[in-house]
Design a protein around this nucleic acid. Sequence first.
DNA 1: GTGCCACCTCAAGTCAGCTTGAGGTCAAGT
DNA 2: ACTTGACCTCAAGCTGACTTGAGGTGGCAC
Lengths: 146, 146
Amino acid sequence: MNLLDIGDVRARTGLSASALRYYEERGLIEAAGRRGLRRLYTEDVVDRLGLITLAKAAGFSLEEIAALGPPQKGEPLDRDVMASRAGELRGLSKRLLAMADALEHAAACPEENHWQCAKFCRLVKLANRGAFHPPAATGARPRMSV
Amino acid sequence: MNLLDIGDVRARTGLSASALRYYEERGLIEAAGRRGLRRLYTEDVVDRLGLITLAKAAGFSLEEIAALGPPQKGEPLDRDVMASRAGELRGLSKRLLAMADALEHAAACPEENHWQCAKFCRLVKLANRGAFHPPAATGARPRMSV
DNA sequence: GTGCCACCTCAAGTCAGCTTGAGGTCAAGT
DNA sequence: ACTTGACCTCAAGCTGACTTGAGGTGGCAC
């Protein structure tokens, strides 16, 4: 079996060596063994890391990903969890789209001052009612970059 | 003019007093004056804070919001910036929707192991090609909660 | 006039997900 | 034999948006 040096894994996944060591420390991946001090990985780890990157992009935290089971397990994710996260993502996607519409409206609005725009003012009031506050109460979700 | 205590502002916006002080420190808002040690705010600040909450939800960082101009200015946002951010939000929204579709497919996929699913494997390969890596090169964008 | 309590300041802590730095190891090429 | 450079460990640092805590102040009701 073709064993990979951490540098090879880095090249195949685009992840930094320090990130890989960090993932190992967090229990997301493991090395097949060592050659001297150096970690040696099986090629499996590349798929595993692809999955991790994917899961992160879907908003799973490293902790959640680690909790999804031991590194080598064939079954990568619980189907129920996946389905429910898909629902959340759909919701977020919708909210973002609404924000985009609002922004675009405000950008194109004929009023010379946004505070004259009823739509804009309605949105601001909604914001103060908590409609856009971070979901702290809803059980702190991870964050994703825009 | 009806002046507001920090506690009143808290009640009207749902933001914590410490967050309000922090926003002031960062130059996002300012108090109209003091009564003794206590900050006094005009009612304007409530709208201003609604706008800030909105902008945060749209992915603007506090620094960007602060850069959009002095607190009391009527013109809240540059239309070009708004329009371009709207485009970014649309893109993010689309990617999230694609992720949701993929997750849902994987959750419902007849294959007993996701690694047997061609769609899933294609996605993992894409992830390793950097398609889902955080946009570090694209100029670090702020983060938003899922 | 006194007690309470909402407010104040300033420094330090929190969270995730890494990165950076100092100081060390080791295998291979010249 | 020696250098190079890729790797190692461990601790500390970074970012953003706040929160928390200790210790202090002062306006208002009684």
